[in-house]
């Protein structure tokens, strides 16, 4: 099965918009099938800027059951956001499969947060999230749609992935010097997956990833 795999620890996805459809895909992919094997709360969504659109989640999940382990809480201020991150440290456990925090940094840049508090509060939030990923050995996926904020988040993230729009759809590109195409996203469909990509295709400048993926039977289109 070709799944969008994330390593444990903090992963930053630089999205193009605050309500990126990617995050729904990631959550549903990860939770697919977990409802059968685990009871209770298996994933936490710490929301900001109303990214948690429930109808989009329902559209994306193969069944309502998929989402039964997901718990969502919305923050409207940086203070609430930070409180939610702390709340997750108290309730998450070995059964936790995934933690997502879309637009993780955005509330910290609102005018109601004074400058002297901004950086440290955000740093504390990110550090806690990264630590959660390490301790729980589960992926913690955060997104940021604004470049200047992404750099702060990047300091704490083990992995950074950027969304780039191409003719093929949205391309996910791993950060760092050796740029790797890690997947394509066509509206509601994933074409391929990160680990396969990295292993089999190499870097984009040498191969056309879509062609290679197709040749190797890796293209998977779900509906």
């Amino acid at each position: 099965m070709h799944r969008l795999e994330f390593e444990e620890g903090l992963t930053l996805i630089e999205t193009r918009e605050p309500r990126s459809p990617l995050i729904y895909e990631i959550v549903c992919e990860r939770l697919e099938g977990t409802a059968e094997i685990a009871e209770g709360e298996t994933a936490y969504w710490i929301d900001a800027r109303n990214a948690a659109m429930t109808h989009a989640l329902y559209d994306c999940a193969s069944s309502q059951r998929t989402l039964s382990g997901l718990r969502i809480a919305r923050a409207f201020t940086a203070y609430q956001h930070h409180s939610l991150v702390r709340a997750v440290t108290r309730s998450a456990g070995p059964e936790t499969e995934l933690i997502v925090a879309p637009n993780v940094a955005t509330l910290y840049h609102d005018p109601d947060v004074p400058d002297y508090e901004r950086e440290e509060l955000l740093a504390s939030t990110l550090e806690t999230l990264a630590e959660l990923g390490r301790v729980l050995e589960c992926p913690v996926v955060v997104t940021s749609a604004a470049e200047r904020r992404a750099s702060t988040v990047d300091d704490y993230a083990g992995t950074s992935i950027e969304c780039v729009r191409t003719r093929e759809g949205i391309r996910l590109v791993g950060g760092g010097d050796d740029v790797v195409t890690e997947g394509y996203h066509h509206g509601a469909h994933w074409q391929t997956t990160i680990p396969y990509w990295a292993d089999l295709c190499g870097t984009v400048d040498r191969l056309d990833p879509t062609v290679v993926a197709h040749d190797r039977g890796l293209l998977e289109v779900r509906s």
Binding site: Y44, Y58, L67, S68, L70, R71, R74, F76, S83
Partner: peptide, 19 residues
């Protein structure tokens, strides 16, 4: 002074009905 108290974590179904 600041708004620290967040909402509680809820499941998707409740949030969907509430939102």
């Amino acid at each position: 002074w600041n708004k620290w108290e967040p909402e509680r974590f809820t499941d998707v179904r409740t949030l969907h009905a509430a939102d």
